[in-house]
């Protein structure tokens, strides 16, 4: 007697979220991307096909970053000093989405100028991060949101102590927000509730439950993502959002990637190890339910993209 394949039937699904708007949709993107929509644990196509392919974002900065590993300067080179050039190179490297990180040196004017330049240089949908300080984030993101009105940009990041201003400007200008919480299922859900209580529709929120790098707490991020996905499938509306995580940022912070000298011989070749660190961090998160992974090295992009392709093809 043939075995009955055990299939879970879930009452809930992840919301499909569309980032970026084409001319027809009121923006200027070459195409928009849609993520989410799943009704199964990651890539269990035998239960139900995964409706939207998870995507890869490449992180670029408004100014040449001082603290990035020299290994990252090799592939990006001079383009790192010019966000528009960088954006083009990232697109060529296989990015589906761009993450533009503003810095503390930015002024509202320079931020708007950079965002416009990046939007002009590449047709990819865009995520814009403030520099990560509440006041500065609000100061920069509001004019950016106004300048990019209609583009369906993802504005980040909203945190539990600073979400009102960013959510308000996202609502006023037709954008999305990234809701970031520190590796806890409940905190993630709570921030989604706070944001949706302000009236932003759920399909304009992408949640970032945060992760650690391989060796630096990835297991917490991994399990939080699995738990969020399970809760969503079980019907918890406040967790039914696509997830965006930053394995590139985390992995390139790790000593294993950052440092080439004075490390144990057992760690092996620096460059190959560094790319492995980012790739495996991303891969584990893809397996636990990431819809967007933000990466830094083109080789990692290539490998993770191929893996997602294989997972989607089954």
């Amino acid at each position: 007697m043939p075995i009955e394949i055990p299939k879970d039937k879930w009452p809930g699904s992840i919301k499909a979220v569309t980032i970026g708007a084409t001319a027809a949709e009121g923006g200027t993107r070459a195409k928009s991307i849609t993520i989410g929509g799943q009704n199964t644990m990651p890539y269990l196509q035998f239960e139900k096909p995964t409706p939207n392919t998870p995507v890869i974002a490449i992180e670029i900065k408004s100014r040449k970053p001082e603290d990035w590993s020299p290994l990252l300067e090799k592939p990006w080179g001079e383009a790192m000093a010019d966000p528009a050039e960088w954006a083009k190179k990232a697109e060529a490297a296989g990015a589906d989405l761009l993450v533009l990180a503003l810095t503390l040196e930015d002024t509202p004017d320079s931020a708007v100028k950079t965002v416009k330049a990046v939007l002009a240089a590449s047709g990819l949908p865009l995520v814009v991060w403030g520099p990560g300080q509440a006041e500065k984030d609000n100061e920069l993101l509001v004019p950016v949101a106004e300048a990019a009105k209609g583009e369906k940009v993802v504005l980040g990041v909203c945190e539990d102590k600073n979400y009102r201003t960013i959510v308000a400007t996202a609502m006023a200008n037709g954008h999305l927000v990234e809701a970031r919480t520190p590796m806890d299922v409940n905190l993630a859900k709570q921030l989604n509730i706070l944001i949706s209580d302000m009236g932003l529709p759920m399909d304009r929120i992408v949640m970032d439950p945060t992760t650690g790098a391989l060796g630096y707490g990835i297991e917490y991020g991994y399990s939080v993502m699995e738990r969020l996905r399970l809760a969503a499938l079980q019907g918890d509306a406040m967790t039914q959002l696509p997830m965006m995580v930053t394995p590139g940022f985390e992995a390139w912070k790790a000593k294993e990637s950052k440092v080439g000298e004075g490390v144990p011989e057992a760690w092996g070749d620096w460059e190959a190890r560094a790319v492995n660190w980012e790739t495996l961090t991303a891969m584990a998160l893809v397996e636990s339910g990431a819809d967007v992974v933000v990466l830094r090295h083109p080789e990692s992009v290539k490998r993770v993209k191929a893996a997602i392709g294989e997972l989607m093809a089954a």
């Binding site: 294993e256 092996g268 620096w270 190959a272 495996l280 891969m283 397996e287 191929a306």
Partner: peptide
């Protein structure tokens, strides 16, 4: 590396690698 990562996360009991390369083995 990618396949081994999936295998480790998703229930493998024995993972066999093609060769011994420290920069590949250490992350796994």
């Amino acid at each position: 590396g990618i396949f081994a990562a999936e295998a480790i996360a998703k229930y493998a009991g024995f993972v066999v690698l093609d060769k011994f390369v420290p920069e590949n083995v250490y992350p796994l």
